[in-house]
Write a protein that binds this DNA or RNA. Structure first.
Length: 778
DNA sequence: CAGTGAGCGAGCTTCCGCTTGACTT
């Protein structure tokens, strides 16, 4: 029996600390918070100074009993949860729930896990800081009030099971507003001119690529310029050399790691966190949920040694980075390898990749600046004020670039800067090889990716490292936003090239606007956002979190009473809740698109019980028709033509064996129906144009497949040939056939045996918030 | 590259931040 019980938040951390402290200390963990506000109802008494109703979480009951037992046996209990608001609250809840005694309870904190730091903490224990706890309670209660009072308004006004919250609603707003910017975006076109120059005499041999200092608005202007260039003389005005420096980025925080892993490996935010968790549990990296760029003195020393060994002394530059994010609570170190001398690790390929990234980023952050020389050459054109310019960059000393370079968000391929430029001198003339004017288009602002959304949220101080990934799954699960690929569209552009004598004009085509795993808002997301902005503009304000954080800071410093703060917030807020329940109208509830020229009926679009629909005929029309919108259509942008097209389905294609063939689009994409059977169309088919002949082909193909499908049938039990190969089905459940077994030889008895054998290990149904997967479209 | 192509209504849904687990194909 140990005299000392130390409780930290994470079990992996407990393990390392126990090793450092030795046998007099038993170190265990609380697995985060142990209790929370009652789940049913508000969990807060708004009529009694926001008295919270705390309940031990069901999955923590066993753990709490265990901790109670341990704490009774210990002589001293050390509450060593993290050194931030949440950590202080965890300590306070532990103190209360475990009914600890002041006399033998000590609160300690440390923000790096080294023997010295921990021993120092133990030498300097303190008591629980109730002001900090109150700041956490205010935060927790405010979030509950917002979430649980606003969400029910949405159930009533828009759709059941929707949700609103301080963090998620702003995340959706960002995506909705970006989409609106894109809708309103007007593409502008310009002609960019670039030239390739070669030596004017035979002495030098070079090719120099240069760009014109200004673009032309019209094709005509660009052409006039090219004409002028035909007989122009090109003279080097000057060669300018400037030394420049590049500095490494700070070590990883949660959000920067998510961004880089997304840019470099296309990992999703959740994927990155899962892999990082595994590395953390194996003791390979420090904690992965952090907002700090700080490195421990131990790590700084190890980095210095490693860099010296690998690259030499002149590559070393020890740096400590200031955390940029103002909302940072800095309870942990930056994310770094635990042992910097381990340049690589064993493990799954993805684990190796992520570790390598973390290692490089950490090491680079402690390396010298890269020294570069940037050269700019300006070239004058006779009788013309515009100039050509060529720039090149040469690395003089690679410094940190030896190991790592941060990637860029916009994968623009117009990297104009090249390497070494030819050695030209002022006054020298150069000859043109060719000059081209290419039509270019301005680009709409980019849609958010998971990682760029996290970046934006962090900049706004909204959300925490532990919530970025869950926030993204929430807004997807509510179907406020979709993460999607979109095919691009073809666009034509002109390119004029001045060759030796003539100007050649070409009309070329390019694909633009293709999107890969980007966020698009849904109609529900748009309507909910508009409603919330209309009625709860303060909460949807991008600076709302930052403002209340100031109050929380004051509470933490003991300058403001948390109950007073909540009263101030709640009074006007709750009034608004009541008002909007009574009176609020939905913004953009319905859009009238126009009149159908064929029937003379009104065409409109709105959100109905099962989602967005188009409607033909007014509400009082007994023969009104409905059609669901397609997945890539939005009420806001739907045109009359697109809406009318929706009513062309279902469409009678023809007849086969005396029965009608109908084509339409369903949940799983376009299909043909015949004799009350549904057959999915192939990629190349279109329900609007499919012919009778093709439809019959599909029907016959399906029949043939079905006939091959059945291998055997024993009453309820069937042996079928499916997508993954043969399988047994019974009562709507499927069972595997062992490898090496020929399905044709299975007897009834064999099947029964296989079923009962596999029934035992059926998965337990878990009541987890599941992300509903919408039907996939081809 | 399987299965699938609804809907008459009861009762429940929901927040943000700490943590890890563990169903099978």
């Amino acid at each position: 029996m140990q005299e000392n019980l130390v409780i930290v938040e994470s079990p992996a951390k407990a393990k390392t600390i126990e090793k450092l402290l030795g046998k007099d200390y038993f170190v265990t963990s609380s697995y985060g918070h142990i209790r929370d506000l009652e789940k049913k109802g508000l969990g807060v008494d708004v009529n009694d100074n926001f008295k919270p109703e705390y309940v031990v979480s069901p999955d923590k009951k066993k753990l709490v009993e265990e901790l109670k037992k341990l704490s009774k046996q210990a002589k001293t209990v050390w509450l060593a949860s993290d050194e931030d608001r949440e950590g202080e609250a965890i300590a306070w809840h532990l103190y209360n729930v475990l009914k600890l005694d002041d006399k033998n309870t000590k609160r300690i904190t440390f923000n790096e896990i080294t023997k010295n730091a921990i021993l120092e903490a133990i030498q300097n224990p303190r008591t629980i800081d109730i002001n900090l706890v109150n700041a956490q309670q205010a935060r927790r209660i405010l979030d509950r009030l917002v979430g649980f009072e606003v969400s029910p308004i949405l159930w009533k006004k828009i759709k059941s099971s929707l949700s609103a919250g301080r963090v998620q609603s702003v995340a959706v707003r960002l995506i909705v507003e970006r989409e609106r910017e894109i809708m309103e975006f007007k593409t502008e076109t310009a002609y960019k001119v670039s030239a390739i120059f070669i030596s004017a005499d035979e002495k030098q041999k070079f090719q120099l690529k240069a760009t014109l200092s200004a673009d032309f608005k019209t094709e005509k202007e660009a052409k006039v310029f090219l004409e002028k260039c035909k007989d122009a003389i090109f003279t080097v005005e000057g060669v300018d050399k400037k030394p420049t420096k590049k500095s490494p980025s700070a070590p990883f925080t949660t959000s920067t790691l998510q961004q880089e892993a997304s840019r470099k490996f296309r990992f999703s935010v959740a994927q990155t966190m899962n892999i990082a968790q595994r590395l953390y549990e194996r003791g390979l990296i420090t904690y992965m949920r952090t907002d700090s760029t700080n490195l421990s003195t131990l790590a700084l020393g190890a980095a210095k040694n490693t860099i010296e060994n690998l690259f030499g002394e002149k590559y070393v530059k020890t740096r400590q980075y200031k955390t940029k994010s103002k909302s940072a609570q800095e309870a942990h170190e930056a994310i770094r390898p635990t042992y910097l001398q381990n340049t690589e690790i064993e493990g799954a390929p993805q684990e190796k990749k992520l570790y390598d990234l973390i290692w490089k980023r950490t090491i680079a952050s402690q390396m010298a600046d890269a020294e570069l020389e940037k050269t700019t050459i300006n070239i004058n054109i006779s009788d013309e004020t515009k100039k050509f310019q060529a720039t090149g960059e040469v690395i003089i000393f690679d410094g940190f670039l030896k190991v790592y370079m941060e990637s860029n968000d916009d994968d623009n391929e117009n990297a104009e800067t090249t390497g070494l430029l030819p050695a030209l001198v002022a006054g020298q003339t150069v000859a043109r090889k060719e000059i081209t004017a290419t039509q270019r288009f301005s680009q709409h602002p980019p849609r958010y990716t998971e990682a760029s959304l996290v970046k934006k949220l962090e900049e706004l101080g909204i959300g925490r490292p532990s919530t970025y990934a869950p926030t993204i799954s929430t807004i997807i699960a509510r179907e406020y936003v979709l993460k999607e690929d979109r095919a691009g569209v073809e666009r034509s552009y002109t390119k004029m090239t001045l060759k030796t004598k003539d100007i050649v004009t070409e009309n070329l085509k390019e694909i633009v606007g293709a999107e890969k795993t980007k966020f698009f808002p849904s109609d529900i997301g748009i309507v909910v956002t508009d409603f919330l902005i209309e009625n709860f503009s303060n909460i949807l304000d991008f600076s709302f979190t930052a403002k209340i954080e100031e109050y929380f800071d004051e509470i933490a410093e003991g300058k403001l009473d948390w109950v007073v703060m909540l009263h101030k917030f709640y009074k006007p807020f709750h009034k608004k809740v009541d008002e909007s329940l009574e009176t609020a109208q939905l913004a953009n509830a319905e859009r009238i698109l126009g009149i159908d020229p064929k029937s003379g009926k009104q065409v409109s679009a709105r959100i109905a019980r099962f989602g967005p629909i188009a409607q033909l005929g007014t509400n009082d029309d007994p023969e009104k028709k409905f059609s669901s919108l397609k997945k890539d259509q939005l009420i806001e942008t739907l045109t009359l033509g697109e809406a009318l097209k929706l009513f062309d389905l279902p469409r009678t294609v023809g007849e086969y064996e005396g029965k009608e063939i109908v084509a339409s689009t369903g949940r799983f994409g376009p299909y043909v129906r015949h004799d009350s059977k549904f057959i999915s169309m192939k990629k190349e088919d279109d329900p609007y144009t499919i012919t009778e002949k093709r439809a019959i082909e599909l029907i016959e193909e399906k029949r043939k497949k079905d006939s091959e499908k059945n291998i055997a049938k024993f009453g309820d039990i069937e042996v079928l040939n499916g997508f993954y190969g043969p399988y047994i089905t019974c009562d709507g459940k499927n069972y595997k056939i062992p490898k090496g077994q020929d399905p044709k030889t299975l007897t009834h008895q064999d099947c029964i045996a296989l079923i009962s054998e596999q029934k035992g290990k059926e998965p337990k149904t878990k009541t987890r918030a599941k992300t509903k997967k919408p039907a996939s479209r081809k």
